[in-house]
Structures are given as C-alpha cells and as structure tokens.
Simulated assay, not measured.
Amino acid sequence: MIIARSIDELRQALSASQRPAFVPTMGNLHAGHIKLVELAKPQGDCTVVSIFVNRLQFLPHEDFDSYPRTWEADCAKLQAAGCDVVFAPRETDLYPEAQTVKVHADPALGDILEGEFRPGFFTGVSTVVMKLFMSVFAGKAQGVAVFGKKDYQQLMVIRQMVRQFALPITVLGVDTCRAEDGLALSSRNGYLSERERAEALQLSLALRALGRDALAAADALASHLPALEAKAMTALSQRGWQTDYLTVRRRNDLQAPQAGDALVVLGAAKLGTTRLIDNFDI
C-alpha cells in the first residue's frame, strides 16, 4: 500500500492507472468506510482512499480541532481491505495558499436542511471534493467515486457537481452501514457516552415512525406533513434531544413532496454534544 502525502506523489502513484476507484474520507475509519473500500475495488484498476480532515466544511464552533484522528489504525484497516493508495495530504499540501476560489452548491439543494443549519458546509464539501477529484482523476479518461448514503444530501450535491461540470466520474452511492441494533455508523458515534449510545437509536426510530405516518397520509401528504413532522420532532425533543429537522422530502431533489413522489425521510439532531444524522428511503 502506497502512502502519498502530496498531489505530485499521488499522481506518480497513479501514473499507470486508467480507471481509479476513489473513496474520500476524513479518517477515523469504521466498518462503513471499509465497506465503501471493498465495494470500490472491483470498480477500478487502483483503489484510492483519501484521509483529510477538511477545515473548510467546519463552522467556527464545530469540532475541527477535536475531530478523531486515528492514523495508524486507519492504515491497518485499509491495508487489510486491499487499498492500493492512501492519499493523506497535510493542509499545506492540499491548500498551499488560501482557497479563495470555491465551488458553491446550487442554493436550491445546498442551502436547505444541512445547509440551513450548517451554513457554508456544502461549499466546503464541494470545494474539497473537487480538489480531491482533480488530484486523483487528472489525466484519466474515467473514474469512479464511492460515497455512503448516510450523508444523503452530500451525495446529491456531489452528483449534481459532477454532472454539471461534465466530470468523467461515475458516482456510486452505497447504502448506510448500521450496527446490529440499527444505529447508522458514524465517526462521531465515538463521542457518545454509554447512556447516549443506547439512546442514539431513537433518531432512526423517529424517522421510521415519521415515514410510516407519511405513507399512511400519502393521498393528502402536502396538507398533513407539517403536523407529522412537528409531532416527530416534539417526541424526540421530549427525550432530551435538540432537533434540527425531521422531514420527508422528494427523493430526487429534496424539495417538498407531492402525492406520488418517491420519498426519503431525513433527520438531524443533537444528543448531548453530539450531532447525528440519518435517513431512510420510504
């Protein structure tokens, strides 16, 4: 397994590759990340994983400095999974000068839900992903990038960016990897206390209940949905959560649904100091 620290080292490592398969991460890898790597391997002729905690997508009060960094454990897991190249740039390698040129998501998609509660988040995500794509796929006729569906809105933003910039990249979305009890795996789950870990499953349960209620009201969903969403948020708040949103949206663009639309239910809420997200197609 090759470890590349600079863009030049990465491109040298990929010089013989015609179709890289790429998994971008911020490290602190768990079974969900490894599943992405394993699914990426047959998609290309060289499997690349990036480990980079991207300052641009963190708000000033968020956990950039304390975000878990587990380099040695990450490398051991990637080697066992058959990763070919790890791209682990320092901040000065990826951003040698202030990144004043940025990629802004379509506001209709990027300024709602996560974008509303974390303003600027998708600008940071889109900018770093574009830079990583240019580092990995420069000079390649085609490539594959693999993302988890737990970050559902992020996946949609990246797909739209790839489509509108006509990048020669196929973006694959992989179903959320879950613990045995159904909790979506997340690097931030490590912040949870034992009591909070037991409670954390309530977010996915609340989303599933909201989804059932939405399907039951499908014939008049638009008129019933505000009350259903408020009910779901109140129930979670009464358990001590700080809820940002629990909502049902149209699956293809995350806009307000109408009868007959394919639907997704999404939620974000804070338990103690840990903010968790989840979603389900319904």
Rank of each mutant, 00 (worst) to 15 (best):
residue 65 D to E: 09
residue 68 P to H: 01
residue 38 E to V: 03
residue 53 V to Y: 00
residue 31 A to Y: 11
residue 42 P to W: 10
residue 69 R to I: 07
residue 37 V to E: 06
residue 56 L to P: 02
residue 63 D to K: 04
residue 71 W to V: 10
residue 48 V to Q: 09
residue 38 E to R: 11
residue 59 L to D: 15
residue 79 Q to A: 05
residue 63 D to W: 02
residue 29 L to K: 15
residue 75 C to G: 00
residue 27 G to Q: 04
residue 39 L to Y: 10
residue 51 I to A: 05
residue 34 I to L: 15
residue 67 Y to C: 02
residue 74 D to M: 01
residue 32 G to C: 08
residue 63 D to T: 03
residue 70 T to S: 10
residue 44 G to D: 04
residue 39 L to A: 07
residue 28 N to G: 15
residue 42 P to Q: 04
residue 42 P to L: 05
residue 37 V to H: 02
residue 64 F to D: 01
residue 34 I to M: 07
residue 31 A to N: 13
residue 55 R to G: 15
residue 72 E to L: 07
residue 67 Y to I: 06
residue 44 G to E: 09
residue 38 E to S: 00
residue 39 L to H: 00
residue 68 P to C: 10
residue 59 L to A: 15
residue 27 G to A: 07
residue 57 Q to N: 13
residue 31 A to F: 04
residue 33 H to P: 08
residue 48 V to G: 07
residue 64 F to V: 05
residue 29 L to I: 13
residue 78 L to Q: 03
residue 73 A to Q: 12
residue 70 T to Q: 08
residue 65 D to A: 10
residue 46 C to V: 02
residue 36 L to I: 04
residue 45 D to R: 05
residue 53 V to T: 01
residue 76 A to S: 14
residue 38 E to W: 00
residue 50 S to L: 00
residue 66 S to N: 09
residue 40 A to N: 00
residue 62 E to L: 02
residue 52 F to M: 01
residue 49 V to K: 06
residue 77 K to C: 07
residue 71 W to E: 08
residue 51 I to T: 06
residue 72 E to Q: 09
residue 75 C to P: 01
residue 74 D to R: 06
residue 34 I to Y: 03
residue 65 D to I: 06
residue 53 V to D: 00
residue 58 F to K: 03
residue 60 P to M: 06
residue 28 N to W: 10
residue 27 G to R: 15
residue 50 S to C: 14
residue 61 H to E: 13
residue 60 P to K: 14
residue 55 R to A: 14
residue 59 L to W: 12
residue 45 D to E: 08
residue 71 W to G: 02
residue 59 L to M: 14
residue 38 E to G: 01
residue 70 T to C: 12
residue 41 K to R: 15
residue 65 D to R: 13
residue 49 V to A: 09
residue 67 Y to G: 11
residue 46 C to Q: 12
residue 77 K to N: 10
residue 45 D to H: 00
residue 74 D to S: 14
residue 55 R to H: 13
residue 70 T to M: 08
